[in-house]
Design a protein around this nucleic acid. Structure first.
Lengths: 307, 307
DNA sequence: GATGGTCATAGGAGACCCCTATGACTAGAC
DNA sequence: GTCTAGTCATAGGGGTCTCCTATGACCATC
């Protein structure tokens, strides 16, 4: 779904933030490296498109209208999230000269690593870190070959030749749209056997989440069940979009489902006899991780893991 | 501070999200009302600017690379925040035909009202709501004159001719930069009398936060103190920017300071003998609020107020 | 092999943005 | 009073970017 076009121009929204902070269009323009007239026009256009006045321009600077202050307060979380995105992508650009090269599987890279790196960087200014995302097998391969110093995997099995340590846990969630028939039975009375006939939405064969799910199902039933009505989809986002459209029962990381659950769009199914938790391991080669890697591991264990 | 230019183009980031959901560049283009070649080129340019591959293009659609999935997960909060911004601004555009017209003072409008409206809209699809932001006096004036159906004010005094109900509380916070000298004494041993000589950063005279602060100070000291070293600034954002630069002790709403406190940039000063809490009132004219207004009030009281 | 679906490329039209130069106005200094 | 320093807005021109339509290349399926 497209967004209104005026909200699309993050640079101008950010510019408005600078005006609020500096109290002047000219100084804000300077802070952004553009000319004052350019900034002036962009802000004027923004106001026109929004349809509400944001600034009171005086001959001694510009201040916000009350409406403008509210808008600025709403812009803040957008910019903060964008900054987090920028930081994350920056660490994904594999710089060869990085002092710490990390490879992580999806869940860790998406939801945990950014925070860890943020804290780590607070201790070491100007630290060169590179990160990459891969599935569990490739993480182990990268560690073995020396292409990375530290890895994170979310599979229960870690090859014996690698050093390892548990740094947390990851839960899978079964989710359906709020209006989906099964949602009424979300809280109780669901059993693993009910899932065999459900239209399941899973990642492709070979992925970590699918493996974990199938193994848990086999554990609950005592045998590997035939899955009649399962669809394989290529990404977590696709699964969640299909679930929202009422397309079935999605199997995704609990963290990926959190946003949808919070807004009430999705409902989590609790299945009493299904254990859907797997450990998150840090892995490295050789006797011990490098000092910097060890510091990150300690930090990861110490930090409270957001559900 | 400017953001990297590629993160600035929210429309393209949103487009990538649609590709992830639909599994196809063409369908994503369609969902955004643009042509397939246009979408294709924008995505290609995004990848080029990011410096990392995001999509695997096959002849049967496009799927995300593992890196792409991580990026998509980081884009999600950006888009969600932008959506909240868009919703907020939409309700600020004063539509005359609105069924419920709300006027709110700053703190409520910024931090509480969007969430209330979100929940209210879930119960009433296609509800026409207009909101505006004003200071406490103007809110009461708008209610009296019938320009608004429901108001929210953060002052302790409500005119006797208006109906009222307490819907929450708002605390003021005294904040300094982490390296500011006073930060070391943040937790204890600070008293109201210490603030008289501090370089205070306040909103302009007549604003609600300044009134509340001065009244609390007078209450603690037993008399209205002379403020030697205070600076008046035009907006909360200006105060926070000045505080971050080490410019003094900022006096702002606790909610406005929350983000800065969470990242560790700011430190909150606790002053034992200063009461900096004020009630938030819903106000209306006549015997009772309109049914829709009453529903919103109930909802506001029931919802947990984020600190 | 034909068909339907996918994404990429090419060329041209239009919108947008930015910069420099200038004008209009105000507050404060002298 | 007058001057100066500072603010924001407007005008004109150049460059970039983005969009669209049309087309091509390729693959899976029938």
């Amino acid at each position: 779904m497209p967004l209104p076009s005026w909200v699309t121009d993050l640079a101008t929204l950010n510019l408005l933030l600078s005006v609020a902070e500096t109290g002047s269009v000219g100084r804000a323009a300077q802070a952004h490296g553009i000319s004052q007239p350019s900034a002036s026009e962009r802000l004027a256009r923004l106001e026109r498109r929004l349809g509400v006045p944001l600034l009171v321009r005086t001959r001694r600077g510009s201040t916000l209208t009350p409406t403008g202050e509210a808008v600025v307060a709403w812009i803040h979380p957008v910019i903060d999230a964008a900054q987090a995105l920028a930081d994350g992508v920056l660490s994904l650009r594999a710089d060869q000269r990085a002092r710490l090269r990390i490879t992580a599987s999806l869940t860790v890279a998406e939801y945990l690593l950014p925070r860890w790196l943020l804290v780590l960087r607070r201790g070491h200014a100007d630290l060169e870190i590179s990160a990459s995302v891969a599935n569990s097998e490739d993480v182990c391969a990268a560690i073995r070959s020396g292409r990375a110093d530290l890895g994170f995997v979310e599979s229960p099995d870690v090859p014996a030749d690698l050093g390892r340590r548990v740094v947390g846990a990851d839960g899978l969630a079964l989710v359906v749209a709020t209006r989906y028939p099964l949602a009424a039975r979300a809280e109780r009375d669901l059993r693993a056997s009910d899932l065999i006939e459900a239209p399941l939405l899973l990642r492709e064969p070979g992925s970590g989440t699918r493996e974990t799910f199938m193994r848990a199902l086999a554990g609950a039933l005592g045998h590997t069940p035939p899955i009649h009505r399962a669809t394989s989809l290529g990404s977590t986002a696709t699964i969640l979009a299909t679930v929202r459209a009422g397309g079935g029962v999605g199997v995704v990381s609990a963290r990926a489902a959190a946003a949808g659950l919070a807004t009430g769009e999705l409902v989590r199914l609790r299945v009493a006899d299904l254990m859907l938790v797997r450990p998150l391991h840090a892995v490295w080669s050789g006797h011990a991780p490098t000092p910097l890697a060890a510091e990150l591991i300690e930090l990861a264990i110490g930090l409270p893991t957001p559900d």
